[in-house]
């Protein structure tokens, strides 16, 4: 319905005024718009910093404001020293600066470690002791179903009968390793639970950063 209307308008205007002339079907004056009363058309986007027609009002000033300003700057300074401020990698700069030593001395109290309460966090966030995936975990083989074990044993026996001992061992190990890798993902969480995680703090940076790519030896946390 709308489409037919517009087409109608077009036809009429074309017939009346010809091409290129204002295509309104009504008197513009009826809207209260007279020649010259239209605002200038805008060309292009507005400038990034336009001229300000009105100057901004000055900021409030007073004791409250000053105190809050001081608080804000103090918080900003302090948050930098708290263990929650995480540095991407605490790689030491090549030259030891005097300033750093001084700053450190000044903020001795801030330089504390932070041990989150792991009871309040998901277990998976706990830093793992790296390479904890013990292949010789005595529990793990027992988790494998008896059937598997029997099959493996019988297979081993069979192979043993063939006489080539060294070969057998290799194969047996290989199979075990493969399985280890597949199941590794699932064991992950159980292992974490097995850890005595109370002992496991961020403090011992060595355990913590050992496996990561970055040089995080210095990360106090």
């Amino acid at each position: 319905m709308f489409g037919t209307q517009t087409r109608c308008i077009c036809k009429r205007s074309m017939a009346g005024k010809g091409r290129g002339v204002a295509a309104f079907t009504f008197n513009l004056e009826a809207l209260g718009i007279t020649r010259g009363s239209m605002p200038e058309t805008q060309r292009g986007p507005q400038p990034l910093f336009p001229q300000m027609e009105f100057k901004p009002v000055p900021l409030k000033a007073g004791e409250d404001e000053d105190y809050m300003l001081a608080l804000k700057q103090e918080i900003r300074g302090r948050m930098k020293g708290l263990p929650f401020n995480i540095k991407p990698c605490a790689g030491r700069s090549d030259v030891e600066r005097y300033k750093e030593k001084y700053v450190k001395e000044c903020q001795k109290i801030e330089d504390e470690e932070w041990t989150p309460d792991w009871n309040r966090l998901p277990n998976e966030l706990m830093p793992q002791k790296k390479k904890i995936r013990k292949k010789t975990d005595p529990k793990k083989p027992s988790k494998r179903s008896n059937k598997d074990q029997e099959a493996l044993l019988s297979k081993l026996d069979e192979l043993e009968k063939k006489g080539d001992k060294s070969d057998d061992e290799k194969e047996g190990k290989k199979g075990e390793d493969d399985e280890e890798e597949v199941e590794g993902e699932e064991y992950d969480e159980e292992l974490e639970e097995e850890n005595d995680y109370i002992e496991n703090h961020f403090e011992d940076g060595d355990d913590y950063g050992a496996g990561s790519d970055d040089n995080m030896d210095e990360a106090t946390y």
Binding site: F84, I86, P88, P116, R120, L121, E124, L125, M126, P127, F202, Y208, G209, G211, S212, D213, D214, M216, Y221
Partner: peptide, 24 residues
Amino acid sequence: LRALAHETSTSLDLVKKCLCVLVQ
């Protein structure tokens, strides 16, 4: 956790730390 570490291409340890901070 893992998706987050992967999508931000940050090491898992760092992401864990960040999450600890945010949760704290």
